Structure formats: structure tokens, C-alpha cells
Amino acid sequence: MTTAAGAAAHPATVLLGAQAGAVALPVCDHYSGVEARMRKSLALQAEMAQEFGACVFDVTLDCEDGAPAGGEAEHAALVAELALSAVPGARVAARVHPVDHPAFEADVAAIVGRAGARLCHVMVPKVESVHDVARAAQALDAAGAPALPLHALIESPMAVHRAFDIAAHPRVQSLSFGLMDFVSAHGGAIPAGGMGVQGQFSHPLVLRAKLDIASACHASGKVPSHCVVTEFRDAQALRQAATRAARELGYMRMWSIHPDQIRPILQAFAPPPQDIEDAAKIIAAAAGADWAPISFGGQLHDRASYRYYWQTLERAHRTGQVLPSSVQPYFAAPPR
């Protein structure tokens, strides 16, 4: 039998099953569209990567809301320049205009055509169907980035209805929920409070949409990304929303629109310290038993529960938590 983490087969290789090959992403996706804020976001990302020893959040450079009317081409060129200037190992994405916007093709050509190799993905807003995803994928292919993933922003009742088909597209890594556009799309049927930090967790139509998107993602091994909290100066509200998204609604990621939101999101999506300790002990014991069933704390564990505890350790790593020494070697080298 094997006892050391480095001597055993890697858990990511051994623990196959329904989630084998599922997408894993940083738990925070930080958006900025004004030049000064984009530059500060990239600098903060580099600083926190040094602090945590890993890139713990994505920076998405925004064209849809960031580009001034009539200045779309200049803004796209700036986004490409900033992506190219990011430090090695940085995770930088771009949100382009919707596929039916006149600037969409030019966005992709300017940003992906020039900086596609430095992007981790492209976010496409206002996706209504899998046909929009296919059109976006074709544009990325034409720009010379046939392997670049797509993230889709779901913002209407019809898009929610089609979320399972959209999530199943092979180029899609993640679905995000566009809360404010979703509420507005109901023509006043959902009150304005549905966009607030309380209403978005209590109004039945909003809550149902969030659950449908999360379920669609998990069905295809993709990452559901929770919507913004616009009350960005209310740290307690942000923490509560992030915690509920992670623990009650099945979300694995969340948007940030202000630097002060990043750390609370990391904390909310990180496993509790005791869960990390238990997961490390169970995975170490499982490896020592060559992944046969074991008894731990008076409970039976086998590969089904091993998979859960391994995913707990992966999430801890993605959120910059300190891992117990028994499992640290698993994160020092890629799976074999």
C-alpha cells in the first residue's frame, strides 16, 4: 500500500465518476471596464497571487459596459493591450459585446485576434440560445483561437429556459446569471426589490432562475457563476449573499464589481477549516488503502465520498487556503 501523497496515484486521476472532467475555475470573477480600474485590477490580481501562492480570481476586462458609445474600437484595442501586459500566470478574460451588436465581430477580431493566447476565456453577454454560442465560437475560431473557452451570461426568461442546452455546448465553461436584465425582462412583473440583495434570494422567479442555471451547469460539468451584489459598500450583505449562493444554491463562483468584494467572496466560497482538515485526513487514509473503502470517524467511506472530499481540497486550493502537509504534494505537480 502507499502512504505518501506523492507516491500514490493522483486523486484527480483515480476518482473518476460523474464529475470527471468537470471544469474548475477560481471562485471569484472580478469585472472592470474603466482603464484606471482595469489596470488596478490586474495589479491587485498579481499582488494576491503572490500572497496566496495561486491566482485566486479572474479579471474580466469589460467591453460591453466599459466601452463608450462610438469608442468601441479604441476600447477593444486597450483591452487587448492590457491582456498582453498581464504578468505570467494571470487569468485575464474579456467581455465582448453581444453577438447581435454591431461591435461584436470587431471586438473579437481586435481582442482575440491579438491577445487570444493570453486570455483564459471570453464572456459573451445576452446569450439567448445555443445558436448564439455557436456564432461566438465561430468568431473565436476565425480569430485564430479555436480552443479558447466561452462563458455565457444568461439574462432573460427564455435564456433560462434554454440553459441546459447552452451549458451543454462543448465550448462553454460557465454560465453567469444577469440579475438586473433578468428582472427588467419581466416588464414590471418582478418588483425592483428583486434586484436587491434580499429580494434576489426571496422572489420565486429570481430564485427559480438561479437554481435552473446552477442545475444546468452541474448537469454538464460546468461552473455556475452567481450574479453581482450591487450594494458593494455593504460588506455584510455581500458576505451573506456569497455564502447563500455557495451553500444553498450550488454556485461555484461569483462576480465581483469592486475590489472590496473579492476577499469576502473568497472567504464565503472557501471550505471551513475543519472541513479541510477532515478532507485531508480522509484522502490521505484512502490513498494509504489504495482507494479501497475505509472507516473514518465511525463512518464508511469509499470512492463516492472520496470524490467529494477531494473536491473540497481543490476548492480550498482555489481559494488560497493553507492545506495540511499530508495533501500538499498533490498540488505541487499536475496529475499523472
Rank of each mutant, 00 (worst) to 15 (best):
A292W: 00
A209V: 03
A5F: 11
I265N: 07
A12F: 13
V172Y: 03
F232E: 04
G288N: 10
Q328V: 13
L175T: 01
M48K: 10
T60H: 12
P334Y: 08
R233T: 15
P146N: 02
G250W: 10
L238K: 04
V108D: 11
L16R: 09
R315D: 08
S129I: 01
D107H: 10
G116N: 10
V160K: 05
C55Q: 15
E74F: 11
L266E: 10
H131C: 00
Q50L: 13
R208M: 12
F182W: 04
A316D: 10
A147D: 14
E128L: 05
L205H: 01
S129M: 10
L15I: 06
Q328S: 00
S41G: 13
A7I: 04
V92W: 06
L148A: 01
V322I: 14
D100W: 14
I262S: 09
K126V: 04
G70M: 15
A316E: 11
C227H: 13
A292D: 06
S325A: 15
K210E: 05
T319C: 15
E314I: 15
A287C: 11
V34P: 00
R208V: 00
G193W: 01
A9Y: 00
I265G: 02
R162S: 03
Q19A: 10
A284Y: 07
H30T: 06
Q267G: 02
C227S: 14
G188P: 02
H131E: 10
P146M: 02
L175I: 03
P170D: 01
D132I: 08
